[in-house]
Each structure stands twice: as structure tokens, then as C-alpha cells.
């Protein structure tokens, strides 16, 4: 059993929680490769995917995970509906809950929105990304993918590269990787790295080659143009030139490293196509594993509300 009642962030999970989720995900991955990919585990559970921010892959991945588990699923994209009419988050979600929903998968542009819901409503909350805070299922699927590729996360060196300041993926990954005994480095222009990040116990690097030489895995983040408040770097051209990863950079290393990306990729900016599509890359494995990991998360939290 998990030690928490909601998946608000990796911060709140214990190492055994993470291990339990990853082990459970392994079983579901096996299910996903069967001819019949559907299991009846969540037959009496209703899940609402409430997305207050645009998302394609996370929403699809959750929806697929829910359907594979036979849950009843409703989708709600709010960016264009009630919020514009002035309805509060609490009202919106309470309206959905009034229709007898057991779990809420929420994505929201405000930091702490899932925590706010968890405090104020009666349903299990799964955070699918809150502002620049956490994206726990992404970090879990990233850990799963590293483990799948390298056998373990423990003692591995992971460099997270790009816009750390505006990234929920970075923060959740830092917590998840450290809890599993990995070493973490962040790399990017100084203006995209939080000033106090060192206090989280990560290494900080501003030279892409140093980062690549150091790491076993490079988790490359998307440059979040939409989250830049005031320009933090001069141009995409300069970014691509000095922080982008291309084949030449990878080939100059005396080892093979693993390339990850949470998507969607800005091809030619943080990754060139020949890297994104190369044997180094496990980007599509991440997407595949995302479904299995989300199935595990939903299954384990459903277990807490309806013990079987």
C-alpha cells in the first residue's frame, strides 16, 4: 500500500512508494503487450481528467491507462469553458464530483492547485502537472524508463538539461531520482536555473559538453517559450548553438549516453532530429512506459479507496 492518499508530488512519496509503483508498472507493461490489453481492475471506478492547461500526450496517456483498467472516464478541458465564465476551480471540481466521481486527474497552471483540491474536496487527486511545481507521473515514467534501459536508477548520473526554472518535470525528477539514490545535475543558461537549486543537492553546470561527459543519462527538457516571463535568454538560435544536443556532440563522447525528453520536442532547438531519432534516444519508450506507469498509479490509488 502507498503511504499517501493522493499523488500530489514526488516530494511526498517514500522510496518504497516509488518502488511499488515501478514494480506494479512492470506488471502492467506486460499486460499492454498481450493481445487483449484490457484488465477489469477499475471497473467500478470513475475518473475525471480535468485539464486546465493544454496537453496532448499526458491526457491521452492517462485516458488510455484508465481505459485499459476498465475505469469509467470523463474528460474536461477547462481552458475555454467555465473558467472564462468566472467559475472557481473548487466549484468546477465540486460540480464534477457531484456526478459521483472517485478520482480526479488534474493539470493546472497554478502551483499547488492539486494540493488545494486535496484539502477541500473528497476525492483522490492525481497531479498531472501543476504550474512550475511538480509532474509526478512524468518523473515516475522517466525513472521507469531509466531502470528499463540501465537496470537500475541507483548510483546513475542523470543530467537534466534546459529550462529548469520553468519546469515541473525537472523538480519532480530531482526528487524521484534522489530518492532512488541517483546523482543529479542540472545544466542550462544561468538565467534558466533557479538560484537556490544547489540546496536541493544537485550539481549545477552551464556547459553542455561538461554535462554530457559527466552523465549516464541526459534528460533534455523542452524550452517552454510559453512560460517565459520576461525573456531569460537572447534567442533560440543562441540556445540551440550552445545548449542544443546534436550528433556531433554525442559522438565526441567516449561513451554512449541515454537521451530522454518528456516531449513535445522542439526539433532543432534542444535536440536535433538525428539525436531524437537515434539509438541513444528512448523518447518513444518513455511514451509507451507512460501508460503502464499511469496504470500503476491509478490502480494503487484505487486500491486505497476501494479495497478489494
Amino acid at each position: 500500500m502507498l503511504s499517501v492518499n493522493h499523488l500530489l508530488g514526488i516530494k511526498d512519496l517514500t522510496r518504497p512508494d516509488i518502488e511499488l509503483i515501478l514494480e506494479t508498472a512492470e506488471r502492467f507493461k506486460e499486460v499492454l503487450n498481450r493481445p487483449i490489453k484490457k484488465v477489469p481492475s477499475l471497473r467500478d471506478i470513475t475518473i475525471a481528467n480535468v485539464f486546465f492547461e493544454n496537453s496532448t500526450r499526458t491526457r491521452l496517456s492517462f485516458e488510455l491507462a484508465e481505459k485499459r483498467l476498465s475505469a469509467d472516464v470523463i474528460n474536461f478541458a477547462a481552458s475555454s469553458s467555465s473558467v472564462k465564465k468566472g467559475e472557481t476551480l473548487l466549484d468546477t471540481v465540486n460540480n464534477i464530483l457531484a456526478m459521483k466521481v472517485d478520482m480526479i486527474v488534474i493539470r493546472h497552471s497554478s502551483v499547488g492547485a492539486p494540493h488545494f483540491l486535496a484539502k477541500n474536496i473528497k476525492a483522490t487527486i492525481v497531479n498531472a502537472g501543476d504550474g512550475t511545481h511538480e509532474h509526478p507521473t512524468q518523473a515516475l515514467l522517466d525513472s521507469y524508463s531509466i531502470k528499463e534501459k540501465l537496470g537500475t536508477v541507483e548510483n546513475k548520473k542523470i543530467a537534466i538539461i534546459g529550462d529548469i526554472s520553468h519546469s515541473r518535470v525537472a523538480l519532480s525528477n530531482i526528487f524521484a531520482l534522489q530518492k532512488q539514490g541517483a546523482e543529479v545535475m542540472v545544466c542550462g543558461p544561468a538565467t534558466l536555473i533557479p538560484k537556490y537549486i544547489k540546496h536541493l543537492g544537485v550539481k549545477v553546470e552551464h556547459n553542455i559538453m561538461n554535462a554530457l561527459r559527466w552523465c549516464d543519462v541526459a534528460n533534455v527538457l523542452r524550452i517552454q517559450l510559453e512560460r517565459q516571463q520576461g525573456k531569460s535568454f537572447p534567442s533560440l538560435r543562441e540556445y540551440a548553438l550552445y545548449f542544443g544536443i546534436n550528433k556531433q556532440r554525442l559522438e565526441s563522447l567516449d561513451k554512449k549516453i541515454v537521451i530522454m525528453h518528456p516531449g513535445p520536442i522542439n526539433r532543432g532547438i534542444e535536440l536535433t532530429s538525428d539525436v531524437a531519432d537515434s539509438e541513444h534516444s528512448i523518447i518513444l519508450d518513455q511514451v509507451e512506459n507512460g501508460v503502464a506507469v499511469r496504470m500503476a498509479v491509478l490502480y494503487l490509488f484505487a486500491e486505497k479507496i476501494k479495497p478489494q
Partner: peptide, 14 residues
């Protein structure tokens, strides 16, 4: 702005 804001992912007032 400090360790706590970094931890919470909130934009800081330095």
C-alpha cells in the same frame, strides 16, 4: 525567493 520557493516551484520575491 529561497530554498523553500525552489522546493515549491513558486516564483520568488528576492
Amino acid at each position: 525567493e529561497g530554498i523553500e520557493s525552489t522546493y515549491l516551484g513558486l516564483k520568488g520575491i528576492p
